[in-house]
Amino acid sequence: MKPPADPFEGLRPPSPPPGLGARVLAATRLAPLRPEPWLDRLWLDRRLRFGWLTAATALLLLDWALSPPFSVTDSTMGTSSLTFAQLDAARPSGGGG
């Protein structure tokens, strides 16, 4: 026996329960009275979302812009930031290899 080309022929999804309309519309009347969680505004309000995303991006860029060009970690002296010029100056003169 071959199944029909359309497996849903003559079938349809069930209907919602009869009392659902009254229940949902009653609940929606109460919805505007409920206080909006303030934290949700961070995600839902487009201006706020743009604001905090811009601030976070600006902080990241600032951090990247102000970071030293080269840093050396020394186990005894901790982390120090030195430029290539400072490293060249600190190199003992005449020392080869």
């Binding site: 919602p16 659902l20 949902v24 609940a27 009347r29 109460l30 919805a31 505007p32 909006e36």
Partner: peptide, 13 residues
């Protein structure tokens, strides 16, 4: 039913 109610409440709110 709960999901439909949640969505319509979100629209109303």
């Amino acid at each position: 039913s709960d999901a439909v109610q949640t969505v319509f409440c979100r629209i109303a709110g």
